[in-house]
């Protein structure tokens, strides 16, 4: 079933598009539900979507779900276009995708832990890249970007991802048997 880490056929095109649309719409929708933000970084539970799509369908699908989903979310909210934050979201889906071939059973604890580990890597690298870009673009200093961008973003994305990715994985294990492709 799982062919290779980097294949990009019809199935991957479809799931990348679905992941992106889900991420975009859900982050817009949960934004509307007024979940109180911590500091300036809104809590976006939907960030678990690109992470999970990475784990379930591979790094390319995860990456596109994240980057395109974030673009869509910003388009829907009318926030414009912020390339370095889009890239950060792509990376948060990409790294969990690297474990794709290592996941045999989506409800097995050790497989879930593997995915969680990659979620942590993805968040650190992704947000790190965005924070460094912020250093360069806004001209703030290192202390500002660490305290204003890096720490709050890493915290909220990690909490969201670590809680919701396992829930999605367990749910997915139940429908896996029903999809025959």
């Amino acid at each position: 079933m799982k062919k290779s880490l980097w294949s990009f056929g019809t199935r991957e095109v479809v799931f990348a598009a679905i992941g992106a649309a889900l991420y975009g719409v859900l982050s817009y929708a949960t934004n509307m539900l007024q979940i109180p933000g911590a500091g300036n970084v809104a809590i976006r539970p939907a960030v678990a979507i690109p992470m999970f799509f990475g784990v379930a369908f591979g790094p390319i699908v995860g990456f596109i779900s994240g980057i395109l989903g974030n673009i869509i979310g910003d388009l829907l909210s009318g926030y414009g276009f912020w390339p370095w934050w889009d890239l950060a979201n792509g990376l948060m889906g990409f790294f969990p995708g690297l474990i794709y071939l290592g996941i045999k059973n989506f409800k097995d604890t050790s497989d879930i832990l593997k995915a969680e580990g990659m979620v942590i890597v993805g968040v650190l690298v992704g947000i790190g890249v965005a924070a460094i870009s912020e250093l360069w673009v806004s001209g703030v200093d290192f202390a500002t970007t660490v305290s204003m961008n890096f720490i709050p973003s890493v915290t909220t994305n990690l909490v969201n991802g670590l809680i919701l990715v396992p829930i999605l994985m367990v749910a997915y294990s139940a429908i896996q048997a029903r999809s025959g492709r």
């Binding site: 679905i18 649309a21 949960t30 939907a46 919701l164 999605l168 029903r178 999809s179």
Partner: peptide, 15 residues
Amino acid sequence: PLMVPVTMNSILAGE
């Protein structure tokens, strides 16, 4: 309860 049904439904449609 909101994210799981929407996500799983979309994945089933994806096939």
